[in-house]
């Protein structure tokens, strides 16, 4: 339980740096597909820096408003996304120390990332535009699809450790990581990590077919804060899989914080790669899959884990 005040400041800085690195890696993958393989290291560098140049461009761009827009709701929606990510990151341990490790760490994480429901809908509703409202509603459909399997995956991890405190979940994975004996819960959690940040195959709320859906009318700082918030949420979602299923700081040779960084980077690279490999899943088809396939699977996993816990 790090009660040092520096950890409260270090968390946002680390998350923003991780988000920039992840955005650079994603820009590299996208550029190699769009413009062909990078010749020299200089081209490789400029491609990796495109997100930062884009951020500078957006900072300089004045925001524009649509007619009869509810700018207050847009501003709350866009500001709420990074806030939700940072609040959810409060229970993320680096190695074995986190900003705060309450007894209900897992439920806190779930509650804070559920704030994205309000954030994306408000951002979609605010500008009073057709496509952005459609994008906002799509996130509600996505939420309905991913939320229950996600909750049961988190509960299964808590069940395995016998506690909702993230620290104890990490401690319970001393010998055997949860990902090994709870593979379905780990897979469902990764799917819901993608869905939570509406990233990869689940980016229909900001889909290319609806001109970036909820973010269609965002420009300038609003757009930067919104998409920056989405990156932060993706980083936090990927990072939370480490203490929950991949043994947090445990691992031979390397110090605890190094293992956390390595594992988070691996999960983040996997999540970013998935976006390159699949088209956007349309929610009317994914909703059926989520309710009729994922939910029973994750319930069976919870049953299996509880039987193991009772017999142990």
């Amino acid at each position: 339980m790090a009660d040092a005040w520096w950890s409260v400041l270090a968390l946002p800085v680390m998350l923003v740096v991780a988000a920039c690195v992840a955005a650079g890696f994603d820009a590299l993958l996208g550029a190699s597909a769009a413009y062909g393989p990078a010749g020299s290291v200089r081209v490789w560098g400029t491609r990796a820096a495109t997100p930062l140049r884009e951020a500078r461009r957006l900072l300089g761009q004045p925001a524009r408003r649509t007619k009869a827009a509810d700018t207050a709701l847009v501003r709350v929606g866009t500001a709420l996304l990074p806030t939700a990510a940072l609040l959810a990151g409060a229970v993320l341990p680096l190695g074995f120390t986190a900003v705060s490790d309450p007894g209900v760490g897992i439920v806190w994480f779930n509650a804070m990332e559920a704030l994205a429901w309000a954030a994306v809908w408000l951002t979609g509703w605010g500008p009073n535009a057709a496509l952005s409202m459609i994008g906002g509603y799509r996130f509600l459909a996505l939420g309905l699809a991913y939320e229950l399997p996600h909750m049961f995956a988190l509960t299964t991890a808590g069940l395995g450790a016998g506690s909702l405190r993230v620290g104890e979940v990490v401690a319970a994975q001393e010998g055997l990581w949860f990902a090994v004996w709870m593979p379905v819960a780990f897979a469902v959690y990764l799917l819901s990590a993608l869905a939570m940040a509406f990233w990869g195959p689940f980016d229909q709320p900001v889909g290319a077919d609806a001109a970036q859906g909820a973010a269609a009318e965002l420009s300038g700082v609003d757009r930067l804060v919104f998409f920056g918030g989405r990156w932060l949420l993706l980083v936090v979602a990927a990072a939370f899989s480490v203490p929950l299923f991949l043994g947090g700081g445990h691992g031979p040779l390397l110090p605890a914080w190094a293992w956390t960084v390595v594992k988070t980077a691996a999960v983040l690279a996997l999540l970013i790669g998935v976006r390159r490999a699949l088209p956007t899943l349309r929610l009317d088809r994914f909703m059926g899959l989520a309710w009729m396939v994922l939910l029973p699977l994750v319930l069976l996993q919870a049953l299996a884990v509880s039987v193991v816990v009772v017999l142990r």
Partner: peptide, 30 residues
């Protein structure tokens, strides 16, 4: 602690869905 965080979680999701019905049935949603 537990009940407080559960209330926060439930209310966020509930109000998001209530938003759908508010728009559906309200004369003047915007």
């Amino acid at each position: 602690d537990y009940l407080g965080v559960v209330i926060v979680l439930m209310m966020t999701v509930e109000m998001a869905l209530m938003g759908v019905f508010m728009v559906m049935f309200m004369m003047n949603p915007g």
